[in-house]
Design a protein around this nucleic acid. Structure first.
Lengths: 219, 219
DNA sequence: CCCAAAAGTTAGTCAAGCTAACTTAACGGG
DNA sequence: CCCGTTAAGTTAGCTTGACTAACTTTTGGG
């Protein structure tokens, strides 16, 4: 048996549930929502590539055919998981900037981009869903919208920083430049690609040193 | 074809002579080598996540159980594919630097890192195997060794550039900084993550503009 | 109150990875 | 030169997951 398949809560059959609940609605209740949440958890635990609808069904206590009454296929579930993930990242980034004293200072920018790394490392499977090779997933509305608005908020913060520090360059371009670096850092850390060639890399120092090079005027 | 495509020292296969004789002596001939090459092609065509040993078997004209006489499992085949890919990248990078007039000039560095992007875009599936989330794969010797020596050669070139242009910073650190950015660029391009937010991005210009910021002294 | 449709079920298909147990071919020693 | 060992291939079968078809049960509206 796969190490990823875990059957923690077994046999919460719909009928039992109906007996417990004062107001049993349908056979199961809000299975759609339950499955999305379960999928979110499972993806975090095992990675999206090892996520199976069957696992989610076992955990939710329904048959493996049940999801198809609510979702087109496995991919639609992952779309909703990805959407949630984008909302989480957006929240975390905004919070980080606020905590660091706003976007006007370099410290604010450091915090903004460091939060991207933190999110990636703390939510690797979700991060891969959001930015990895999943063309169909990311083309879907919900996801597309969340991704765009996440980026917009970053651009807005960078624009504020540029205005405050006299940077005249297009703030979207500045954002893309910084994002690109930070994304590379996140990927190489996550995938442990530094391990083989620079195992003692201080990635926080690297980010701290590099960010000014990318935000400020050319040397 | 690359000089690396044939006799690596690890071919323990006792049927090596079949390759020399052009007369297959066993049921199939050098199935081991054939399967690795077929796998390489299939991964390039369909991506590693859609690669199946069964496909490779059909294409090679053997039963689906045959590979297990030569390989531990599907993963071992992918290890060998990844090893080949690293050799290709190393070749391509060295060639690019040479063509651009050597590592002493900024143009040489541009060519070096641009070749990383070119390789990634032209060999997306292989690139993902090499740098993506495949911990077991990348921990395997052959692969580890190839990856390290690929990196070493880049560091050597960067060191030459640093020496030629009076940069005193540790050239490994400089390499890591540039690699990180270029890797981010490669990933975001491959995964089409710019499409939703900056569809008209000129990534060549971005690289050209950013590389000096990462190689040269801090502003 | 009853019936249509929503939400669940069981059973079955198909493809993949992998194993077991069998067959066939090549090689090397008597 | 034959014959046994063993490498290299075979077929058949197991398991797991995605998905479909055809069913049953529950619910809410007319």
């Amino acid at each position: 048996m796969s190490p990823h398949s875990k059957g923690a809560p077994l046999s919460i059959c719909p009928l039992q549930r109906a007996a417990e609940n004062a107001k049993p609605k349908y056979h199961h209740g809000d299975l759609r929502q339950t499955l999305v949440e379960t999928a979110y958890d499972l993806v975090r635990e095992n990675g999206a590539e090892h996520f199976s609808l069957a696992d989610a069904c076992r955990r939710a206590g329904v048959s493996t055919a049940a999801p198809y009454k609510h979702f087109r296929d496995r991919n639609e579930v992952l779309e909703l998981v990805t959407q949630r993930a984008f909302l989480e990242l957006t929240d975390a980034s905004m919070e980080a900037v606020k905590t660091a004293g706003g976007p006007q200072t370099l410290a604010g920018m450091q915090a903004l981009f460091a939060s991207y790394i933190t999110f990636a490392m703390g939510n690797q499977a979700l991060f891969r869903l959001m930015f990895g090779q999943h063309p169909e997933l990311k083309k879907a509305e919900p996801v597309l919208g969340c991704g765009q608005s996440c980026f917009e908020q970053v651009v807005t913060h960078v624009a504020t920083y540029c205005a405050a520090t006299g940077i005249t360059e297009d703030s979207k371009l500045v954002t893309v430049r910084a994002w690109t670096f930070v994304h590379g850092l996140a990927c190489l850390l996550m995938d442990e690609d530094y391990e083989a060639v620079a195992p003692d890399l201080d990635h926080q120092a690297l980010l701290r040193d590099t960010l000014p090079r990318l935000l400020h005027a050319k040397p």
